[in-house]
Every structure is written in structure tokens, then in C-alpha cells.
């Protein structure tokens, strides 16, 4: 039982990443009708915003320490970050320690700008082209973006830890009345889950309760009519592309303490995100979120040893198996509606 509860929690944190990425994908698909294969790359760029900020905060000047030697026997050069020099040891190190949460503030404008630039500079030229063209151009863009990151940061993962205060884990089992040390859960994964819920709620609230959101929803339902009413829907959709990029970027920023970011991390999430979008129902924001969490939990439960013993290899295929079963029974996905994206 404790194992199942632990996997449920784990599935929710996994599902958080799937849901956030799929939410952004659906926003773009629902508004602009573009199949954006560069969305994983946006997630990766977000993660590298955290890496970049952490590097900016640790820009240092070197001091030669004569009392120690480096590996070649020369006097050791010690790096002293400017932040530590300006704000003192304690405050300076605390700022560096909190670089991942701080990167949220840094990533929002950066990702919005990247989103706007991508949409205005490239994607908008492909609105009237077939989906195959869109897939090719966005997939190509994803490869270009990841190769740029690899050029600057190399292929190895770069450790970007959470603040010390959140780097450990806590005994969830003891809280729920189980034996100690049976359900241990890392703080940061719980934070990731809560963060995902806040972002998802924020996006839904924005679409539901603002005039801007109302226009966008109207545009998603019937673009032409909204245009006839004299509303420049394209401009609003560009903003939505920026927001979708920011959502993917923030998902990436917060993911860095879970797994050290590398240039390829976007591709690792891309396929699964598309499965999530299709299972959720094309163009359905709620469906994307629901499917993200459902598939995350299913993936975790399938990794239980008892399940693997029963059906060997199920852990590797469960997501795709679930997708097949759901699409067979509900061809439009969990929350897809008739007539949406079916032209």
C-alpha cells in the first residue's frame, strides 16, 4: 500500500511536467493551429535560463592563493563571486543558493521575448501551410536551438541544485500514519507539483476571467467571426504564443533541480507531450492537464515491481498502451469535442 501511495505522489510530480508542457502545446495548437515541435526546446531553454542566471550570479574574479597549488603545481587560483563581495558572505551565498527560484523572475521576460520572436519571425509564415510543413520547420528549429545550447554548454548535464532548504526529502509516511521510512518524498518534487497547479490555475483564470482571455477563447472557437467583429486576433494569438513559451520555460526552470539540465532534455519530453495532448483531446486545455497527470501516475504505477513481475516490460510501454486504449474507446481523447481540429 505504501508503495502505491509513493508511486501516486511520484506520478503527480511527473504528471506536473507533462501537464505544463502539454498545456503550452495545446495553447499554441488551439489558438494558432500550429503543431509546434519546438515546444520541448522551449522547455529546455527555460531550464537553461536557470543555468544562465546561476552562472551570472557566480561571475567571479580570481585571486591567487599562494598557500595552495593546483593540479599542475602552480599557485591555486580561487574564484570569488562578485555577489559575495558586494553583499557579504552570508547574503551573497544565499542569493547564489536561491538561483533556481530567482530564475523564475528572469525566465518570464526572456521566454516571452523568445516566444514573440519565434512567432513573429518564423511560425507566422507557416500558418497557411500544411501541418507537415509546420512540423518540419518547428522540428528543425528545435534541433537548431539544442545545437546552439550544446555549442555553449556542452553535452554533459549541468548540476543546478535547489536551495539547500528544499534539497532534502521528508517522511510523508509518518505524516499519513505509516511506518517511518516507507514513504519518503523529496521536497522539491512536491514544490514542483504545487507550482504546476498554480501555473495551470493562473492560465485558466487568465483565459476565463479577463477580457483578453475571453477574446482569445472566442478566437479559438471561431477565428473568422472574431476577425469580422474588428478584433485583431492575430496580435492576441501572438501574445498567447509568448505565454505558452513562458509556461514551458517556467516548467523547465523548476525542473532543473529534479534532473540536471542538458541540451537534449526537450526532445526527451517532446514525444510524450504530444501523446498527452492527443490523449487529452486536441485543443482541449483541460484535457491536456488531465491527461498529463493521468499518464504520469500510470507511468509511475507501472514501475511497481509487482506490476513489472506480472507484465514484464510494461513500465516501458504503459503510456503508449494507455494512449491506444483511450483513443480506441474515445477517438477524440479524454476531453476532445466534436468538430474541433477535425477539418
Amino acid at each position: 500500500m505504501d508503495g502505491i501511495i509513493l508511486q501516486l505522489f511520484d506520478g503527480l510530480s511527473k504528471g506536473s511536467a507533462y501537464a505544463l508542457i502539454a498545456l503550452g502545446l495545446t495553447l499554441i495548437f488551439g489558438t494558432l493551429g500550429v503543431v509546434n515541435f519546438a515546444h520541448g526546446a522551449l522547455f529546455m531553454l527555460g531550464a537553461f535560463c536557470a543555468v544562465l542566471l546561476s552562472q551570472l550570479l557566480t561571475i567571479s574574479h580570481t585571486v591567487v592563493d599562494e598557500s595552495r597549488t593546483d593540479f599542475l603545481g602552480n599557485p591555486m587560483q580561487v574564484d570569488i563571486p562578485y555577489v559575495v563581495e558586494w553583499f557579504g558572505e552570508a547574503a551573497g551565498n544565499a542569493i547564489i543558493d536561491w538561483s533556481v527560484p530567482l530564475a523564475i523572475l528572469f525566465a518570464i521576460p526572456v521566454m516571452l521575448l523568445i516566444g514573440f520572436a519565434m512567432e513573429r519571425g518564423l511560425i507566422r509564415h507557416f500558418y497557411k501551410r500544411p501541418h507537415a510543413d509546420q512540423i518540419l520547420v518547428t522540428f528543425g528549429l528545435a534541433i537548431v536551438l539544442q545545437e546552439i545550447i550544446k555549442y555553449f554548454y556542452g553535452a554533459n548535464p549541468i548540476p543546478t541544485p535547489a536551495p539547500d532548504a528544499f534539497s532534502g526529502s521528508f517522511d510523508l509516511g509518518a505524516v499519513l500514519g505509516f511506518d517511518p521510512f516507507t514513504i519518503i518524498y523529496p521536497y522539491w518534487r512536491l514544490i514542483y507539483f504545487v507550482f504546476a497547479l498554480i501555473i495551470i490555475a493562473g492560465v485558466f483564470a487568465f483565459l476565463q476571467f479577463t477580457t483578453f482571455g475571453m477574446v482569445v477563447r472566442a478566437g479559438m472557437a471561431d477565428r473568422e467571426t472574431v476577425g469580422i467583429l474588428g478584433i485583431d486576433i492575430d496580435k492576441r494569438f501572438t501574445v498567447m504564443f509568448g505565454i505558452a513559451a513562458a509556461v514551458a520555460g517556467l516548467a523547465g526552470v523548476m525542473y532543473t533541480p529534479i534532473n540536471s539540465p542538458n541540451y537534449h532534455m526537450g526532445m526527451d519530453f517532446l514525444v510524450i507531450s504530444f501523446v498527452v495532448v492527443v490523449v487529452g483531446g486536441m485543443g482541449s486545455l483541460g484535457g491536456a492537464v488531465l491527461a498529463g497527470f493521468v499518464l504520469g501516475v500510470l507511468e509511475s504505477l507501472a514501475s511497481l515491481n509487482a506490476v513489472i513481475e506480472l507484465i514484464p516490460g510494461i513500465n516501458q510501454v504503459v503510456i503508449y498502451l494507455a494512449a491506444v486504449l483511450i483513443l480506441l474507446t474515445r477517438p477524440r481523447g479524454l476531453m476532445g469535442r466534436k468538430g474541433v481540429m477535425e477539418d
Binding site: D2, G3, L6, K14, F181, E299, S300, S303, N305, N315
Partner: peptide, 23 residues
């Protein structure tokens, strides 16, 4: 106690680590 195979493409190993706790 157990030998569990993990896919080469796996990036998040949490669901494989979790069962270690109760094993």
C-alpha cells in the same frame, strides 16, 4: 534483493527509485 532493468532513454528515475524504499 532485486535487479530491475531501466530503459536507456529514461530521464526521470523516480518511479524506479521509489520501490527501493520498501524492498
Amino acid at each position: 534483493v532485486a535487479t530491475v532493468r531501466t530503459p536507456l532513454t529514461q530521464t526521470d528515475f523516480s518511479s524506479y527509485i521509489a520501490p527501493v524504499l520498501g524492498s
